[in-house]
């Protein structure tokens, strides 16, 4: 069945998602939103990996995605804990307020 969705479509969506993630990290100031943007970057890469894996008929890409998801989960767990520690110390999660270390 011809669906009209080619490998290119997947790669373009993935590139757009990745760019959105990068823009989010650079422009947003809330630590939680930055964390979500980073997740988007990782998921953009996952989409590419799965699409390429299916296209080439090679399983490595799909296995890699499992590992990326696991790592992302671990990273979020640690990240939220750090944000929590920050909130306890400074009562804020906006990265603009986190600026005592400057020259």
């Amino acid at each position: 069945m011809e669906t009209g969705i080619t490998l290119d479509s997947y790669l373009i969506v993935s590139a757009v998602l990745f760019t959105l993630g990068v823009v989010g990290v650079i422009t947003r100031r809330n630590a939680i939103v930055i964390l979500m943007s980073i997740e988007m970057m990782l998921n953009a890469a996952n989409l590419s990996l799965v699409a390429l894996s299916a296209y080439m008929g090679d399983i490595t890409g799909q296995i890699f995605v499992f590992f990326v998801m696991t790592v992302a989960a671990a990273e979020v767990a640690v990240g939220l804990a750090i944000v929590l520690a920050l909130f306890r110390n400074k009562q804020t999660i906006y990265v603009d307020d986190v600026n005592i270390l400057k020259w």
């Binding site: 993935s14 990290v25 980073i38 970057m41 953009a44 890469a45 990996l49 890409g61």
Partner: peptide, 15 residues
């Protein structure tokens, strides 16, 4: 974590 995003995407493209 931001750098990790680049790393994973780079690996995907190399793959």
């Amino acid at each position: 974590a931001f750098a990790t995003g680049f790393l994973v995407y780079g690996i995907a493209l190399i793959y």
